[in-house]
Design a protein around this nucleic acid. Sequence first.
DNA 1: GTAACTGCAAAATATTTGCATCCTT
DNA 2: AAGGATGCAAATATTTTGCAGTTAC
Lengths: 124, 124
Amino acid sequence: MERRKTQSTEEILSTLKDTDFALSHKMIQQRLSIEVDRATIYRVLNRFLEDGIVHRVISENGKQYFALCEDCERNDHHHNHFHFRCNKCGKVECLAREVDIQLPAGYTAENINSLVTGICASCR
Amino acid sequence: MERRKTQSTEEILSTLKDTDFALSHKMIQQRLSIEVDRATIYRVLNRFLEDGIVHRVISENGKQYFALCEDCERNDHHHNHFHFRCNKCGKVECLAREVDIQLPAGYTAENINSLVTGICASCR
DNA sequence: GTAACTGCAAAATATTTGCATCCTT
DNA sequence: AAGGATGCAAATATTTTGCAGTTAC
């Protein structure tokens, strides 16, 4: 399936580029300079996910957050870093420090979703 | 608020005790030997959460999974361990190994939700 | 008896999907 | 022209809530 360059796609991508933290669907919609349908945003984001352009964190509120894969533009698309969500300002950030997860024998990892919640430095 | 001993509560608790992995709301409902309303199950689980009897993992499918706090019955109710969800059998387990998360300066952690998905030993 | 708990229905929230139409290539 | 992308509405899915009736203590 070939990907086409559309206004929605470009807008959503540049919105993600403009922020250094992860955005929820709603946050993305609010930041767009044009109106894009809810469903379209989800579809674009899911396409980005498939293409490995963004990664997704699920917060403990059950919501999805999306962020560009800055560091992970290399081939091995591993996201073994933590995310942090501030309970005050709501920002979801990618924590730089990588974590090596040691699984029990015979287990293989495919995806890692890890989120720490608390208070960030600027909020306290 | 005082807690009362009811059939639903006892049933849900013993269901959780009978399994060594985390259960979703639906899985719990199916395992109960009596019929308990959807909303009641959620309310019971949330009470358990408040009381620190269970802990909750959010899977990357957005669903909540609940498991008894075996190891965490001590005072400091920290859940800095990983969870693993098998993409084949769907089991969500608590991985024994503790992980120390190093946050940037000024950050304080309140809750940790970490889930690795992949294939477990018995499924491959 | 009183406050906690329950069931039922309805609401709230988040995400996906069907389908006709539009637009990129 | 072909098929990928979009908008709209409707469907799913999960969890929560209001409220009246029930039950534990």
